[in-house]
Nucleic acid binder design. Structure first.
Lengths: 332, 332
DNA sequence: AAATCATGTGGTACCGCTACCACAATGTCC
DNA sequence: GGACATTGTGGTAGCGGTACCACATGATTT
């Protein structure tokens, strides 16, 4: 491993000069610069990020804290973050928080010790204290999917409320006469917004009843169980808007096992737009979030912040899109 | 951010002493130690990993290079790696190589610059040169799923050949009379081994024909297409062993769309044991690799290596397990 | 009694880089 | 022609640790 000293010696200049050409800062004679670059090439010199980190307190490494990479929403998001980061010369550390505030805090501490440049939180446990702490120790961060319960946060999310309305409208459009909703954990903002969107859309129908809303855990088995509950309560339901795709796939499983035809007897619409929705048969209609774009935008904003650009601490809300597929395409 | 100097001053000792209690190295009077620890607590001092990295050339960070985190096999693996790493005080950097050798090389370089402690390769492009290079620059690494084409590698894999035989045997057991195979890219060792296992198992049957083996790309659409090809060639096939779960789900889709009953007309058995196999209906019988264990073992071995333990440079081959589910449970 | 050893502590040269300061040598302006 | 930029370069003090060496003390050995 060549060091900056080796380069300086070979090029016959001082360390300072090499540092200057490296960072394109200050004055360097173009002739000298050429010499230095030649030496760099010859020695295959690469500056040590660690040494730089020690002086700069920046390491060109960002962290992505998410609940659980196994949840299929997050791989796509992670991919986007990594793509953008890599292109911009950053590496990505990832950590699973399992939605536990203490794991998240522990990570913040470790990351601070490592002079991480910035953090993206795709987790749901960042509270006011954490935010204040991050601001105090001056680590740039971007949050996914959080309501702006606190000032001074850059938030990337999609329009869950409108998405839910879109879902219900679509189910109505394909002829559904009684639409139920399976919702996710209400601590999670997205789940809450989607539930609100559903309620808002259906509350004025004569068939509306609060019992049409069944809770789930945002996982496969949650969707399966909720569908069972629903079929017992309301066997006459002919459309279900499910709070996320994973539960929607679970609900689909239950219905198929009960011998119910999807979409002809019951149409299903999910939310998220993960690949899984296309793996099942019939393929799942969904309200697709621009998952990749969300990750890419979050990474982009974070890097801008890190590099000192002025980033508005505001909510970047992206639009969702109805993706109609077989699970709501009733045959005539 | 308190530094070691602050602690030394507050405790009224020298930096050296603080360093000694920090690293539990050398002699320290227990009284002194208590004083130092008190100071550490009071200042909430945490040693800087970066500064340590500069002296030690070790950063308590490991990297996980995989083809694409979006491929559902890898999130589970990553989760295991991160769990083990976190427990041992390491953080995990992840990178997608898309199976491109140059991206992989680029990553190795960046990681070297960052004094990464070690690397896990779950990617398929590590060649002899890369291995030699890694050994030369003395970065510990562990490889997943690679044949031991070169000495000096610690490899974690599962028994793909036996797994394939298990799959075929299971299909025979449930009464299949003509079994096809959809195989993955032959540059990938696992795909090759599974194909060999299939051939080995079926070559002596009278119904055997090379045309029963159809190529796929290890992705969903590859499985869909291959199933189409297969149905044209051999409409009388009644069992398919598919080289991985993702393609198996694709094949299942195609069959269902063609109106073929699974498992009664055609039974399907996949390979991998990813969660997706349980999301589809009928649920997919599969040869499950111990994915989590593989990731955990790889991380464990890597950390042992990093910390100087003697790790045999050998192949750690884990057993696979048949998980029978609905896709091969024929009704009587 | 001298030599040796275990215990305990402090001083400081690195690790590889950046940032700041100092210093020259020119060029430019009034 | 002196004051003042502009351009170009080198020296070096950190950044926050670790590791090695030096040194002091009291105990043990010979």
């Amino acid at each position: 491993m060549a060091t900056i000293r080796d380069v300086a010696r070979l090029a016959g200049v001082s360390i300072s000069t090499v540092s200057r050409v490296l960072n394109k800062s200050g004055y360097v004679n173009s002739e000298t610069e050429r010499e230095v670059n030649k030496a760099i090439q010859m020695l295959k010199y690469e500056p040590s990020d660690v040494a730089r980190g020690l002086t700069n307190k920046k390491t060109r490494t960002i962290a992505l804290i998410l609940p659980d990479i196994v949840n299929p929403f997050f791989p796509e998001l992670s991919r986007a973050v990594e793509d953008v980061a890599r292109t911009s010369g950053y590496t990505v550390i990832f950590g699973n928080s399992d939605g536990q505030a203490n794991k998240e805090k522990a990570y913040i501490n470790i990351l601070k010790q490592k002079y991480i440049s910035g953090i993206i939180f795709a987790s749901h446990n960042l509270n006011r204290d954490d935010v204040e702490y991050l601001q105090k120790i001056d680590i740039p961060f971007v949050v996914l999917d959080r309501a702006p319960s606190q000032e001074g946060c850059t938030v990337v999310r999609s329009n869950n409320f409108e998405g839910a309305k879109l879902a219900v409208q679509h189910l109505l459009d394909v002829g559904c006469k009684k639409i139920a909703h399976i919702y996710g954990p209400q601590e999670i903002n997205t789940a809450k917004d989607r539930l609100s969107g559903y309620e808002e859309s259906v509350k004025n129908f004569k068939w509306y009843s609060p019992t049409l809303m069944v809770p789930g855990n945002f996982k496969l088995d949650g969707g399966m169980n909720a569908a069972h509950v629903l079929m017992e309560r309301h066997p006459d339901v002919d459309g279900i808007f499910v709070g996320n795709d994973l539960m929607a796939v679970g609900a689909l499983k239950t219905l198929l096992r009960l011998g119910i035809k999807v979409p002809n007897q019951i149409a299903i619409c999910g939310f998220d737009g993960i690949h899984l929705a296309e793996a099942v048969e019939p393929e799942l209609t969904t309200i697709a979030q621009p998952i990749y774009e969300m990750g890419a935008l979050a990474a982009d904003l974070l890097i801008k912040k890190i590099e000192g650009a002025v980033v508005d601490n505001r909510i970047y809300e992206l639009e969702v899109k109805l993706v109609p597929r077989a699970s709501t395409t009733k045959e005539i």
